[in-house]
């Protein structure tokens, strides 16, 4: 569904990605883990055309979208709940969700809204509240809900657990699994919280300094001693230590 080959990208003269190859099949949950500054956010943003790739190609459902403007990529079915959530602070929760619907078909707004509110009932109680006044967890729910409003086929999630309480993290990960299972949305999940991400994902990649250094199934990487040392057992990449033992 998404295939990335030889991708280079960066900011001005600073190159952040040095030749990324990656393949996502329809219906998968794929995780990308890596330390702070590895280039995970840059990869997700480059898929959406901001910044633009300097070399290599990105194909989505057989079409080369490398040079498409961001809005066209979104309308083709790639939704992004970005780093920092980027909720429109002076728009209501409802208006934020309406903005999410722009990429999709406006005809089924009412049923899409209902679907998203059933995933995130908290948002339903706050429809008229301004986005900027929500708590961190609610903002993350809104960012994911907004991304789902356009009925995407591929959902990019950039550190959805960052800064959230463990209970909320678990809730959000359950919802991600549900979105994938019952709505068939392919999920590309970037996380520093490697433990949860690797348990949820069928496949995963490890990124170090703008390159992919390891890949495999979620359980393979979870058992890999190098991954455990770097990202799970007190490694510098760990955001929150796992609260329960690995299965």
């Amino acid at each position: 569904m998404l295939s990335i080959t030889g991708l280079y990208s960066g900011y001005g003269h600073i190159e952040a990605l040095h030749g990324i190859d990656m393949e996502l099949a329809a219906g998968e949950i794929v995780a990308l883990i890596g330390a702070n500054g590895a280039g995970k956010t840059t990869l997700l943003m480059t898929i959406c055309g901001k910044p633009r790739a300097s070399q290599g190609s990105i194909r989505f459902d057989g079409e080369d979208i490398t040079d498409w403007p961001s809005f066209r990529i979104a309308r083709r079915g790639i939704a992004h709940a970005p780093e920092g959530r980027r909720i429109f602070p002076r728009m209501s929760v409802r208006e934020n969700l309406q903005m999410g619907a722009v990429a999709g078909n406006q005809q089924h707004f009412a049923s899409d809204l209902e679907r998203v509110l059933s995933l995130f009932p908290r948002l339903g109680e706050r429809l008229q509240q301004r986005g900027g006044t929500l708590s961190g967890g609610e903002q993350q729910m809104l960012a994911i809900g907004r991304a789902l409003m356009g009925r995407p086929r591929l959902l990019l999630l950039d550190e959805p657990s960052l800064g959230l309480a463990p209970l909320v993290v678990r809730q959000i990960f359950e919802i991600i699994a549900d979105i994938n299972r019952s709505h068939g949305v392919t999920v590309f999940l970037v996380e520093q919280n490697a433990f949860h991400a690797l348990r949820l994902a069928q496949r995963a990649y490890v990124m170090v300094n703008g390159r992919i250094t390891l890949q495999g199934s979620g359980s393979q990487l979870l058992a890999d001693p190098a991954v455990r040392a770097a990202y799970l057992e007190g490694g510098h990449g760990v955001a929150t230590p796992p609260a329960e033992p690995a299965p």
Partner: peptide, 10 residues
Amino acid sequence: QDMTMASLLG
């Protein structure tokens, strides 16, 4: 409020 986010939403 956020030009980049607006374009990411279509």
